[in-house]
């Protein structure tokens, strides 16, 4: 699959100088990090008591309130 993709790049985009030079190998842990970043985004923008206790969630909601509105996520 990966090799096929590379073959396609070299044949089709032959105009670009060195295709292999631009490839960055992404380690497996990077995807765990990406998942964590998505979770962090959920936490600051949407967490309203699904994971935290009600008082803690309300505190978080009030502290992140202005940014939640500004980011355009449904707030209340």
């Amino acid at each position: 699959m990966e090799r096929k993709g590379h073959f396609a790049m070299t044949t089709v985009a032959s105009a670009s100088a060195v295709p292999s030079d631009t490839a960055v190998s992404v380690p497996v842990w990077a995807w765990a990090l990406l998942a964590f970043a998505v979770f962090a985004l959920y936490f600051v923008s949407q967490e309203n008591g699904a994971l935290l206790s009600a008082p803690a969630a309300q505190m978080l909601h009030e502290l992140t309130h202005d940014a939640r509105h500004a980011l355009g996520v449904p707030c209340h």
Binding site: L63, T64, H65
Partner: peptide, 15 residues
């Protein structure tokens, strides 16, 4: 809330 909004914005930016 205003300070919290700014901190949230930076956290969102990093994520």
């Amino acid at each position: 809330q205003v300070v919290g909004g700014a901190v949230t914005s930076v956290v969102v930016g990093i994520a």
